[in-house]
Design a protein around this nucleic acid. Sequence first.
DNA 1: CATGCGTGGAA
DNA 2: TTTCCAAGCAT
Length: 290
Amino acid sequence: MPESPLHEPVLEWYDDHQRDLPWRRPEASPWSVLVSELMLQQTPVARVLPVHEAWLTRWPTPAALAAEPTGEAVRAWGRLGYPRRALRLHGAAVAIVERHGGEVPDAYTDLIALPGVGDYTAAAVASFAFGHRHVVLDTNVRRVLARAVSGRELPGPSVTRAERDVATALLPDDPATAATWAVAVMELGALVCTAASPRCGDCPIADRCAWRAAGHPAYDGPARRAQAWAGTDRQCRGRLLAVLRDSDLPVHRSALEAVWPDGAQRTRCLETLLADALVAQVGPDTFALP
DNA sequence: CATGCGTGGAA
DNA sequence: TTTCCAAGCAT
């Protein structure tokens, strides 16, 4: 389903406005792309940039990372958030060495079999790193298509069949063009067609946007539940892990008690961190990164 | 399919 | 000061 009136303006806009990101440069390796995609899951580009650079310097290949303890990945992950992603990236590196001779695979089915790689990430790596033709459906793309094509402000909570059909119908036939289209729509969503304050005045397809034509009707789907934070297990786990991350030596229980007063919750969170293999117990009362 | 999972900057 | 996130994944 090639020629859509959306293609040319979006591709031209991307050519003029795309950000210069390390994982988009011609010399970027598939490993660099994969690392960036894991880090960018729910984490803003600005915070990923320095960690990605340090990561690729220290571990230029999957084999280099796979040779290290998982705790080194957790430490290097720093404050990107969702540190289980660090374990998954390490696990992906191990799997790449074991199953693919140390080379990041280019096939979607091989990619999605890696830890931490779901539909979006598999399609993104196959498309961005290898130029393959895939529907790359992230939250940015979903929002752009919801607006421009479907006339709604925001996509629903989960990907629908109809949404995927729309994205598939718009995907250019030529693989190279499809890959550029995928990253271009995503970039448009990230820079112009943003969630909160879309800059329709800068949008290359504003005159073809169904949402704009309909007068920017407000989102009418199910309310997205706000995520609580203060006092949650997530906050507690974050505090505990930060103590271990910031110490080169194993830490005593007392150091953990100091950052979270609620003993029952602290104990429970420490247990889940141990169960998740984000923390290791190295003595009767001492803990460290694995 | 609904939930849980971190973080720090912007509105 | 609160709120709301930001290129999802696993269960």
